[in-house]
């Protein structure tokens, strides 16, 4: 049984301008200790997926329309508030994109670090402090014993993200959800942080969900990847399959348009058009209007994820039926 089993998760936002279908029937599994990447552009629903699981969607305007998310036997979407609170922050932890705003500027680092332990009753104050110090040391903060008495503003961006990681991992969670953890950081610092998450993951056996828009970040980091577009998973599979055997036209186009993978001076491949308007439901595949392989079928029939071998699933009708080849 997978550690986390998300089934048909659907989250809509009911706004003045209509119903925004942010997440529309997403299903995936996460095994113990595994690293899953969720890749997509802004508005593809990758963050909303994870926020929905943790009950972090502002309701209203958001509403979880249907679906389940079983974590170790508990359905996170339908359990009581109390059950959710005992899981969130203890067994499923989250780190956010912006380390500058996700720490409370008025509290000492130490007080923020021991908070999860005290809230969940995992330790008394003395031993919590001991654990906090050890954790801070483990995430590579030099001179942890004195820095732990400091305030967030005394830390640089990279250091704060380390503190955030320490805070998330201090309860030794089963799942760590990292939402664009390095987007706000410089490349050289990004490399440090990714290395750190990997190291801690191996030591604690934590499963990690990494949400990012950067294909480069997931390629070296994740075991499996879900590619999201327009609120749906359009392709899913082992990292190598996703990169070396891309099937869905969106995944292919995405990889073709990355400057890093293209010869210099060559005209970059571009995906025509714009991301879909999520408040207007499309009858068929949401990528069809931008897809160079789209047929009448694509605009009329909604595609479903289907296995095409090697644990690789894709939601393209043409790939599934006619074996569309790159």
């Amino acid at each position: 049984m997978p550690l986390l089993d998300v089934n048909d998760l659907t989250t809509y936002f009911h706004t003045r301008n209509g119903v925004v279908r942010a997440v529309d029937g997403v299903s995936f599994q996460l095994e113990k200790g595994e690293t899953l990447g969720i890749v997509g552009e802004s508005g593809s629903g990758k963050s909303v997926t994870c926020m929905s699981m943790l009950g972090l969607i502002p309701q209203p305007p958001g509403r979880i329309e249907r679906g389940t998310a079983h974590f170790d036997g508990t359905d996170l979407l339908h359990c009581t508030r109390k059950e959710l609170q005992s899981i969130r922050g203890r067994r499923v932890a989250m780190i956010f994109q912006d380390p500058m705003t996700s720490l409370n500027p008025y509290l000492r680092i130490e007080d923020q670090l021991i908070e999860p332990l005290l809230i969940h009753g995992l330790a008394d104050k003395v031993s919590a402090k001991k654990q906090a110090l050890a954790m801070l040391d483990a995430v590579g903060i030099q001179d942890a014993a004195s820095r732990i008495r400091g305030y967030p503003h005394e830390f640089s961006g990279g250091m704060r993200q380390r503190v955030m990681i320490a805070m998330a991992l201090i309860t030794k969670p089963d799942v760590l959800i990292a939402d664009e953890p390095t987007t706000a950081l410089d490349v050289t610092v990004q490399a440090q942080i990714l290395e750190l998450i990997k190291k801690e993951q191996q030591e604690l056996g934590t499963a990690v969900i990494l949400i990012t828009h950067d294909l480069g970040v997931v390629s070296g980091f994740c075991d499996r990847i879900n590619v999201m577009y327009g609120g749906k998973i359009v392709e899913s599979g082992p990292t190598k399959e996703i990169f070396y055997n891309p099937q869905h036209p969106y995944n292919r186009a995405l990889q073709n348009s990355i400057p890093a993978l293209q010869a210099k001076g060559k005209e970059l491949y571009t995906i025509p058009g714009m991301p879909p308007d999520m408040s207007k439901p499309s009858a068929g595949c949401s990528f069809a209007p931008r897809c160079e392989h789209a047929t009448d079928l694509c605009t009329s029939e909604p595609p479903e994820l289907q296995d095409i071998g090697q644990a690789h699933t894709t939601a393209c009708l043409r790939v599934q039926r006619e074996n569309l080849k790159p």
């Binding site: 490349v187 050289t188 990004q190 490399a191 480069g216 990889q255």
Partner: peptide, 18 residues
């Protein structure tokens, strides 16, 4: 430090961590 969208080279190459 620039992550490359290429799983094989990304796993084998040596990274200089500053």
């Amino acid at each position: 430090a620039v992550p490359m969208p290429d799983p094989d080279s990304e796993r084998t190459r040596k990274r200089i961590l500053l």
